[in-house]
């Protein structure tokens, strides 16, 4: 009996060690871009490119981290000169996100209450060729399109993980609601 208990304890310890260590979640803020969010792991900034038929070619800023085979990404694009076209620019980005993919969810997104509300959309798609599953959230705020995407890679495989939802729903535009101690995001030079 005692041998069995020891073996069980050893087995459980080994299993715990074999599981990938999950990084702690941190809060990040960009006062310049006007939003904050939470993500696990080290968030690194880079420059990307986006092209939409209506939006045209645009440079983007990408904040990205990977933890436990889930990729967390925030993409920011500036459309200061085309704010009145924000609805179409955002709609085009949402459409491109789900185009030719299996859509699992497509629903309203709303951040902040009352007159400060920002309306957008939350969409979940299955990526082609068993590429995993991505949950995206899309907002257009103060001339900037802000897209949060969390992709559960096949190596993780837990498509019911609550972490993508936690990431997507952590977005804040009223910065007084940002968690204390949030790390200021460094913008790429």
């Amino acid at each position: 009996m005692r041998r069995f208990a020891i073996a069980t304890l050893l087995g459980a310890s080994l299993a715990a060690m074999a599981a990938p260590a999950q990084a702690a979640w941190h809060s990040y803020v960009s006062h310049k871009l006007g939003f904050s969010f939470e993500a696990p792991g080290d968030v690194k900034a880079s420059v990307g490119a986006y092209r939409g038929q209506f939006a045209g070619p645009h440079e983007s800023i990408i904040f990205r981290s990977v933890d436990d085979n889930i990729e967390y990404k925030v993409t920011v694009m500036s459309f200061m000169q085309a704010q009145a076209d924000g609805a179409t620019i955002l709609g085009e980005r949402e459409y491109n996100f789900q185009n030719e993919k299996k859509v699992l969810m497509d629903t309203f997104g709303r951040v902040e209450p009352g007159k400060d509300a920002i309306y957008g959309r939350k969409i979940t798609v299955e990526l082609p060729k068993n590429g995993g599953r991505t949950l995206g959230a899309f907002y257009f705020v103060n001339g900037k399109m802000i897209v949060l995407e969390a992709t559960i890679l096949p190596a993780n495989g837990d498509y019911a993980s609550p972490d993508p939802g936690r990431f997507i729903d952590s977005i804040v535009f009223q910065l007084q609601r940002t968690q204390q101690g949030a790390t200021e995001l460094k913008l790429p030079e």
Binding site: Q53, T88, G91, Y119
Partner: peptide, 30 residues
Amino acid sequence: AATLLGEAEYIFQDQKKLLMDAFGRVDGKF
């Protein structure tokens, strides 16, 4: 624009039985 349109869409379907909610695309507008 994006939030005003989203708000109008949201109000339209709020507390009603939603049967369809799909992209619209006409003449380059979404």
